[in-house]
Computed example of a mutant assay.
Amino acid sequence: MPRTEAPRAAVELSGVSVRYGSAKQPVTVLDGVDLRVRAGEFVVLVGPSGCGKTTLLRVVAGFALPAAGRALVRGAAPRPGRGAGVVFQQPRLFPWRTVGGNLGFALARHGVPRAQRPARIAELLERVGLSGMAGRRTWELSGGQQQRVALARALAAEPELLLMDEPFAALDALTRERLQEEVRALAGRLGTTVLFVTHSVEEAVLLGSRVLVMAAGPGRVVEDLPVPLPRDAATDVPALRASPEFARLSGHLTRALRTG
């Protein structure tokens, strides 16, 4: 029988190490990290501050180069601005532009013709629950609304890969829960591959199809936890949060973080 090759990973890190500082006194932030993310997975990174979660995301985005090892995104070396949408902890919107202007700028950068941009802006705002707000100024929006615009901007190029670095950390609890549910549903609907950084155990369990636990000194992956929770559109998320399985996974993850 002919041998069937495994499908190409959306993200693949092999022995990746990252060092900062001088050659005489280097600081190893990541050490020999191996990671394989399949297309359509929602993988969450958790771990203590300083364990290299954000640095790992920067490597995948092409913002940082490994000192050793290899990083591949869909089989090629990652390049900034190519193939991945990035959402930071702060929205980082242009305050002198409207909501539509921020999205239009992103669309222009990705080569969308001017005539097509209004329809694409309307579509993107509908995806993130901000229909009809293209003419609003960014400073008129709440923090949660601004983060939705940042998400819409990241989706402007229709990326197959979405990198999210603690995007909800600065939001109030209710807004955070709502955006968690919306991102969970949106990623499932679009089939987007997501790599998501958080410090929250509950957020990791709710969002991830897998959770990677990282330990510091230097940063490395110490556990890969599958999350076998339902992810279809009909899932009652509040009931899911209150379920025994959610509590079991959260407890397991908390213990892994304490011992990692």
Rank of each mutant, 00 (worst) to 15 (best):
Arg117Asp: 02
Val194Arg: 00
Glu5Asn: 00
Leu35Gly: 09
Arg148Leu: 06
Gly32His: 10
Ala173Gly: 08
Val149Met: 03
Gly15Met: 09
Ala119Gly: 10
Asp34Phe: 10
Pro7Asp: 12
Arg210Pro: 10
Phe94Leu: 06
His110Asp: 02
Leu45Gly: 08
Leu103Ser: 02
Ser17Met: 06
Gly111Gln: 09
Ala10Val: 13
Gly143Ser: 02
Val227Trp: 07
Pro118Met: 01
Gly191Tyr: 01
Val149Cys: 04
Thr259Leu: 15
Ala234Asp: 08
Pro230Ile: 15
Glu182Pro: 05
Pro218Asp: 06
Val33Arg: 05
Ala152Phe: 02
Gly111Met: 07
Thr259His: 13
Gly69Ile: 15
Arg79Gln: 14
Thr98Glu: 08
Gly81Arg: 04
Ala39Ser: 09
Val11Tyr: 09
Glu158Lys: 11
Thr138Arg: 04
Gly40His: 00
Val46Cys: 10
Thr254Phe: 07
Leu249His: 06
Ala61Lys: 05
Ala9Asn: 03
Val128Asp: 05
Gly188Thr: 05
Ala154Cys: 07
Pro26Ala: 03
Gln90Met: 01
Arg210Met: 12
Pro7Gln: 08
Gly144Leu: 04
Ala39Thr: 13
Arg231Asp: 12
Val237Leu: 15
Val221Lys: 07
Gly50Glu: 05
Ala108Trp: 03
Gly21Ser: 00
Leu186Gly: 03
Arg153Gly: 02
Leu57Lys: 02
Arg178Tyr: 01
Glu245Ile: 09
Ala150Leu: 07
Gly62Val: 15
Val205Ser: 13
Ala157His: 09
Gly52Tyr: 04
Pro2Leu: 06
Leu65Thr: 15
Arg255Ser: 14
His252Ala: 15
Arg136Gln: 00
Gly260Ile: 15
Ala23Leu: 05
Glu245Trp: 11
Arg220Lys: 13
Asp31Ala: 13
Leu155Gly: 01
Ala134Gly: 02
Arg178Leu: 07
Leu103Cys: 08
Arg178Pro: 04
Ala106Thr: 02
Gln25Ile: 00
Val18Cys: 10
Gly47Pro: 07
His252Tyr: 08
Leu179Val: 04
Leu35Phe: 10
Val227Gln: 06
Leu141Arg: 04
Ala157Cys: 11
Thr235Asp: 10
Pro218Lys: 03
Ala77Gly: 11
Gly81Leu: 05
Ser14Thr: 14
Glu203Phe: 08
Val29Ala: 14
Arg70Tyr: 10
Gly47Ile: 09
Pro66His: 12
Thr28Cys: 08
Thr193Phe: 07
Asp31Lys: 10
Val201Lys: 11
Val237Met: 15
Ala154Trp: 01
Gly52Cys: 04
Thr175Lys: 01
Leu124Asp: 04
Pro91Ala: 03
Leu125Asn: 00
Thr98His: 01
Val44Met: 05
